[in-house]
Amino acid sequence: MGTAIKEQACIPKKMRIKIKRADISKWGWAYLMVAPTMIGLFILNIWPIIQTIYFSFCSSGDFGKYEWMGTDNYARMAADVTLWQSTSNTFLFTILSVPLGVCLSLLAAQLLNTSIKGKTIYRTIYFLPIVSAPAAIAMVWKWLYNCDFGLINYILSFFGIDGPGWNTDPGYAMISIAVVAIWSSIGYNMIILLAGLQNIPKTYYEAAEIDGANPFRKYFSITLPLLSPTLFFVIIISVMGALKQFDLVYMMTGFKNPVITQTRTLVHYFYTQAFDISDKGYGSTIIVFLFIIIMFVTWLQFKGQRKWVHYN
């Protein structure tokens, strides 16, 4: 990180003054180059975020009539059992889906990075879920999970197991959703990790082999450290995605399912408040709350990265 800055510090003093003079034109270019992104980002994203933060301090009436009411929404949040349930569901989903998902992706990437036959075929198959539409994925899995006509319970019945209602049993519903999330994200994470693995120069391994390092040591002293920036990227993106989970719950649990109390995530709760009940003020408060959570978790990860992520 920050290699450019470090390099500049190494340049002799005389040259540094020169560069400073060039700074103005440099800055001009920089602003021009970020302009389209920043303008678009501001109109499409940042302004709505600012509005949302403002609305979180308001009570909402019909058709966008907002009335300032200070921190009432936040006070209401503290006493809202559903909100805390959704928060713990969101974390549960993240814990169920991210570590296992990343590990399996890493395993798949690792195995595909060996010299075996049929790599292309495996790779293709592992990627299939990520090129499928989410509605199609939810549809198939709902059908697989179905307790009357589902394939999973049918197969289990051969082993004498009376399978649960994967989608309707409070003990299993969240696990079932996490399984679909993992299933559909392995390929995506695997691409990135595989790229990272292939970028590790072979010379490192050759050197280690000469030193007589066993595979176990090779893995922990070469592969993991060198892969760590990629792994970090994957984890950051996965955690953010998991904390923002909505689609799968929306499509797989549905609103009439009693297990919704076990599977409702924060974004899903926001969606019900803002769009179903039309309470945009409180909905905004929920989102601000989630946003703070995500920021905090991401900050923690960035702080933690110093301990295990190696940039060369």
């Binding site: 179905n146 307790c147 009357d148 989608n167 009439k256 009693p258 297990v259």
Partner: peptide
């Protein structure tokens, strides 16, 4: 049950 009917 309601659970069964939310599945099918």
């Amino acid at each position: 049950t309601i659970e069964q009917m939310s599945d099918t």
